[in-house]
Design a protein around this nucleic acid. Structure first.
Lengths: 196, 196
DNA sequence: AACTATAGTGTTCGAACGCGCACCGGTCAA
DNA sequence: TTGACCGGTGCGCGTTCGAACACTATAGTT
């Protein structure tokens, strides 16, 4: 019973430390963090975590760094009922935020959203749009276009064979560009942060 | 002319190293990287970069870590005009969405949103809510509460000294729980993917 | 009961590390 | 011309670090 993995707990503390300090702490600090008395314990912990692909060595073998699985997050099943846990092992498949919204890292750009012209599509000022460049845009896509030397996020529409830009806010007019419409990229995701 | 800043070049090499190794190298390695003969040069470089907010110290002052501006090229500047580089070539994008929205990894759970009761707050069905557990919730926060054995995402309000749950959709009623209100966690972020 | 695997302790040691200090040689402004 | 500033050299010091080795205690296996 209560068969919870101690290493998961250790990993959690490492992840918390990393979120603050953006590095894997030294063996000595790991001891303080976990309550170990001996650096060997810390070292063995890292080796175990390496085996499970949570951490790895730098290419020059100088230090420990997080590996793929280090950034796994717990994804709750919305069926999960009142009982408590929803910890990583429980009703949760591993979920990586970055993999979820970024498909083509080399062609993906984050663009802060300014203004409320897309408010009715649930896109607010201050949100961050995940934009993929070099992908063909089609009718109905949300695209970042360049109009008057500025980025503009709108829905791409077609009217009489020509592209138009449709805001999702009745207070804004539809944009019917004359000549070429320069499309910067297609919006593939959105990230928003509350508070802080 | 062409008075280009040497430090920019150094910074670039640091960023390249970081893309591979996800850490700021030791003074010694910086010397190799930059061609310095003395560790002091490396140290002074870091101090200069710290002054410009490219790097900083960990909270426990143990080591150097990248700061905000270290990643700035990954974020497109909305003032940027048409031509613009936006660094598409440099494959490894240092900007991590995960870092951006997850502050306390060990206490953070991703919960898919079901239903449209928060549609007017720009939260759609199918979005993924980033929820932090064990954090005190206050009036005005979006919280995940447990009502009738199911997760419910609502705004936390207070009415006559009691907590209530306010939907952001006029079609839904305000929930006034009798007895204890079980709050699962506070919503700290949101992730959405546009599938195409 | 003996065997094995595993988490953690305690200690030692050499190498790597960060840091301070003295110094050097351009550049630029007073 | 002088002097301050600044990027860089060279070196030494004390500390920290990671790795290794021997050992302990507990749990699971046969």
């Amino acid at each position: 019973m209560a068969e919870y993995d101690k290493d998961r707990d250790y990993l959690g503390r490492l992840q918390d430390y990393y979120a603050e300090s953006r590095r894997i702490p030294s063996l000595q600090r790991i001891c303080e963090l976990m309550g170990f008395a001996s650096k060997t314990a810390a070292r063995k912990l890292l080796l175990r975590l390496e085996g499970e692909r949570f951490v790895e060595r730098t290419p020059d073998d100088d230090a420990w760094i997080p590996a793929q699985r280090f950034f796994e997050r717990a994804l709750a099943d919305h069926a999960v009922p009142a009982g408590m846990p929803v910890s990583a092992e429980n009703g949760a498949e591993p979920f990586m935020v970055d993999d979820y919204i970024v498909q083509k890292p080399s062609r993906t750009v984050m663009i802060p959203v300014k203004g409320d012209s897309m408010i009715n599509a649930g896109i607010h000022s201050g949100d961050i749009a995940v934009v993929e460049r070099g992908t063909g845009a089609s009718k109905g896509d949300f695209v970042v276009a360049i109009v008057d030397n500025e980025f503009t996020l709108k829905e791409l529409g077609i009217e009489r064979g020509k592209f138009i830009l449709i805001p999702h806010n009745p207070a804004y007019p539809v944009i019917r560009p004359q000549g070429e419409l320069e499309i910067f990229g297609v919006m593939v995701g959105l990230v928003r942060r509350y508070t802080h």
